[in-house]
Amino acid sequence: MDPYIERSPDGAVAIGTLDSLLNLARKNSEWYLLFATACCGIELMQTGGPRTDADRFGFVFRPTPRQADTIILAGTITYKMASRVRLLYEQMAEPRYVISMGSCANTGGPFYDSYPVVKGGDLILPVDVYVAGCPPRPEALIEALMLVQDKMAREPWLRKARGRWPDPKDPWPQPSAVLGSCAAAAKGPTPKG
C-alpha cells in the first residue's frame, strides 16, 4: 500500500504500515542464488555482468541458499539433480521465490523426449515467474526479477506469516489477478514434443 506522505518545507514524512516498510527493504534487496544447471547459466552470469548490471536493482547473487531470496532455475534439470534442487530450495529462508528460466526449466524444452530430463521445474518447485527463451536474454531475466519484486510488493509478508492474509476484510490489496492468470496460463496444456 502507498504510504501517506506529509510534505513540509524541509522535507517530508512518510507514514505507512510496517509491512510496506518491510516490503520496501525486501524488494530492493532481492538476492538470488548463484545456481545454474546448464547453458542458461551463462546468460545468468551475463545478467550479473557489467552490461546489464542487475546490481543496480538490488539483485545481488549469493553463493549460499541461506542468504538467498530467489532461486533461478537456469537450465536443464535432470532427475538426478532434482532432489538437489529441492534441497537447495528447502534450505532457503521464507519468503522465497522461484524463477523458471528458459525452455528447459519451463517444460523440458529441447530435451522433452529424453529420459533423464525433468519436464519442467514446476513439477518439483512452486514457480512464481516463467521466462521464455532458449536462452532468455539478460533483459528478459531482469524483467522476471522485477516481476518478483512486484509480487513482493503485493505481499504483506508480516501478515501472511501470521496467517492474516489474504483476507477479504484487509485493506491490503488481494493477490494480483494479473500475476495469478500469468501463472495459470503457463501451467496450461503443453503440446508434446
Binding site: A82, K119, G120, I124, L125, P126, K187, G188, P189, K192
Partner: peptide
Amino acid sequence: YRGIPMQRPQTAAEAVTP
C-alpha cells in the same frame, strides 16, 4: 520417478502441485 511425472500434464486438471 520419485513422484515426479515423466510427461507434462496435458490439461489443467492433471496439473500437479509440487
